[in-house]
Design a binder for these strands. Structure first.
Lengths: 239, 239
DNA sequence: CGCCGCATTGACGTTCGTCAAGTCTAGTGG
DNA sequence: CCACTAGACTTGACGAACGTCAATGCGGCG
């Protein structure tokens, strides 16, 4: 891991719409620019932080994709999410001042390190930032409710359709193609995230391909029939 | 729903260890006492708030048990949690200024209403409260990660064991018996929460009873063999 | 070239969902 | 107080969905 100790201005960042509150005064923007004190590169496969590690900063992703994983004593592992540019990691660490999951880069990545005490201090001076932090955390909670719905009440095909659509939307909102997607995670990681075994993930991909809804070749995924994909998760068979 | 418009002092509340930050100065405590402006009674089966309703307050439970439920357009429902005294509801509403789930009382209950703008204002003046709100939200995120693990990688028996132990611990930390529990939720609600059908919940309860680990009669649950119950969720069969 | 990790595919078994019948309980009204 | 009913719970029989095990394919890399 290569650490560069140079300042990065959030006001110049092309991701600020994703990360930062909008409609700030010039003064406020100046303050927020002090928030990110270092940028950090993380190589594919490397940890950004570990379960059990002392918490002292949040991390905003500039480039690259991460996964977060929790593990129990008995060796069970669960991927709790895939994070991409503009998203914030480490919120779970605030509760106990200790990170409760591992964050691992799925490709070479670059993140902005925001020391939490500094964030609290600036948030104290800039109400809009304060409110923004609440919103980010709340969004995470809402998001996880949706994953609970997915894990608790969907079948394999529905789960995978929801997963693909979710990735697709997030790529689109970042200016990438919504239908030509380069998956960064393995089948096993997808399976862990969706509560499925790797074979089921593979089989379900194959089925969606046979049905002409997607094309998948290793990690490159094309959505061929978006409407039918959406139908898979919004139509229940029971009346 | 019966609304009483009288002030309640958090400093006098016997739940303050659960709700509020500790180690405050006298001045800070005075400020925080202004936070809860109304107490509200909610009858069994009534909604505290609805999905889609405008968000403007958080709710701390004084007495009673609630469930929170999200539902998708296609009629799927998922219980996202059961909340008891000292726990805070409504955090999901901050993100979009709209509640994204229903909160329903499982028994007659009493809650403290904390207007969110007021909370933000007082939090601005009292740093410890500020930090405490972060902690509460972070705790919620960590908690939901654990539920994801449960939903994603556990079998029915393990899920139910984890559920019982979770309830047991929370009862204990509130001064109730850890082994003699009065469940407030139906089998169907438990099933929805755990990603199981009602019949599976019932069967699994019966199996745990046959094994001598619990006794269950309708809604009254006794834990007969705590160690074995704990073993169910911490021992994996694979090496 | 050969190895290794990842992915796919098939055959089979287990778990859990589905359907259906029957029991128990609490609440209601006579 | 009892009878009646609706809703919640239990139990059994069966089948579908998914996990497990195993064989095979495929692409990347030393």
């Amino acid at each position: 891991m290569d650490i560069r100790n140079f300042k990065v201005a959030c006001s110049n960042c092309n991701l600020k719409e994703l990360c930062m509150p909008v409609g700030l005064s010039f003064q406020d923007i100046e303050k927020i620019d002090q928030l990110v004190e270092t940028r950090k590169k993380v190589k594919k496969g490397d940890h950004l932080f570990h379960n059990g590690q002392k918490f002292n900063a949040l991390y905003a992703i500039r480039t690259g994709v991460f996964k977060t994983v929790i593990s129990s004593e008995d060796g069970r592992e669960q991927v709790t999410g895939f994070q991409m540019a503009g998203e914030v990691m480490g919120l779970d660490g605030i509760a106990t001042d200790t990170h409760t999951c591992d964050a691992i880069a799925l490709e070479d990545a670059e993140i902005c390190l925001m020391p939490f005490d500094k964030l609290e201090q600036i948030a104290h001076e800039v109400n809009a930032l304060q409110h923004h932090v609440y919103k980010i955390m709340s969004r995470e909670i809402v998001n996880e409710h949706n994953i609970m719905m997915l894990l608790g009440s969907m079948k394999a095909e529905e789960k995978l359709a929801a997963f693909i659509l979710n990735i697709s939307q997030r790529m689109k909102s970042r200016g990438f193609s919504a239908s030509e997607i380069n998956l960064r995670m393995s089948r096993e990681e997808i399976g862990s995230y969706l509560g499925l075994k790797i074979e089921t993930v593979s089989r379900t991909f194959s089925k969606l391909e046979d049905d002409g809804i997607i094309k998948i070749n290793n990690k490159s995924l094309s959505i061929m029939d978006m409407p039918r994909l959406q139908k898979l998760i919004s139509s229940r068979r029971d009346c």
